[in-house]
């Protein structure tokens, strides 16, 4: 029994060594898994990973929905109806994509508020804040365009209002709205463009930006709220206080010495 266990352990080590030599996977994992993080307020920092998790769910369910969704004005609505009523777990997959998007917007908002309140955007983490703002804008645009892909009244009119707002842009209004419409009226080209934005263009920008967000996070480390450092700050303040007192007494002594000298 013990011999088998030893052998298994040896085999495991061999595999790990083999991988490490070729990919540095083991040391990479070691570095990633043993990154220092705050012990206090740990639950506050789950918002970021929850956002990542929900976005992963969106990518996964989005790819699954594409197996049935047809981006044409004639069939878009029918294909979604088909997903909801005839495909195994269709309601689950579409429901997860829909509710995942709703939850994502809540969680990403909370994540942003947390970052704002803890001041985690201060030097040297400014660029991570900028990437984060770009991500939140992209996610809301994705929610907006995805809503319209249903090509039902609700989603269509939301997108329609959005396009109409674009038409008010000074100078380039007409150009901007006809670019979104794919012509001067709502038609098949409008839905094709929506499909491009939601399914290819914006995820293609979103995915690498998430990578940059994570790399920058790991580069400078998680900055927790100030209370994560309260003991160290207290020690610092205490030391500074002592120094000031020492200075004060030292100057007192000097004064005394100088007055005695007179």
């Amino acid at each position: 029994m013990t011999r088998i266990r030893d052998r298994m352990a040896e085999r495991g080590r061999d595999v790990a060594d083999w991988l490490e030599e070729r990919t540095r996977l083991v040391s990479f994992m070691e570095k990633q898994l043993y990154e220092p993080t705050p012990r206090r307020g740990m639950w506050l920092y789950t918002l970021g990973s929850a956002t990542l998790f929900l976005i992963t769910i969106q990518f996964l369910t989005g790819i699954l929905l594409l197996f049935y969704y047809v981006p044409t004005t004639k069939d878009a609505w029918n294909s979604i109806y088909y997903i909801m009523h005839h495909v195994y777990f269709g309601q689950l997959i579409r429901g997860m994509h829909f509710w995942g998007a709703n939850l994502l917007l809540i969680v990403i908002g909370l994540h942003m508020i947390r970052t704002f309140l803890s001041g985690s955007y201060k030097p040297p983490r400014e660029m991570n804040w900028v990437v984060g703002v770009a991500l939140i804008i992209l996610v809301s645009l994705l929610a907006f365009t995805g809503y319209a892909l249903r090509w039902d009244q609700e989603g269509f009119y939301a997108w329609e209002v959005g396009m109409k707002i674009a038409s008010y842009t000074p100078l380039i209004g007409a150009w901007a709205v006809s670019l979104l419409l794919g012509g001067d009226t709502v038609g098949p080209a409008t839905l094709s463009r929506l499909f491009v934005f939601h399914v290819w263009l914006m995820p293609a920008i979103l995915a690498p930006l998430i990578g940059v967000h994570l790399i920058l996070l790991r580069l400078h480390g998680e900055f927790g709220a100030a209370f994560e450092y309260s003991e160290r700050l207290a020690k610092l303040n205490k030391r500074k206080q002592y120094e000031r007192m020492e200075e004060y007494f030292a100057s007192d002594e000097e004064e005394e010495e100088s007055s005695r000298g007179e």
Binding site: I57, T73, W77, I80, Y81, M84, Q91, L92, R94, G95, M96, H97, F98, W99, G100, L103, R150, W151, D152, Q153, E154, G155, F156
Partner: peptide, 17 residues
């Protein structure tokens, strides 16, 4: 939560555009 909501409150699909 998403799985429960997916079944409890099915995602909307109102009349076609």
């Amino acid at each position: 939560i998403t799985i429960i909501l997916a079944y409890a409150v099915p995602a909307d699909l109102v009349e076609p555009m």
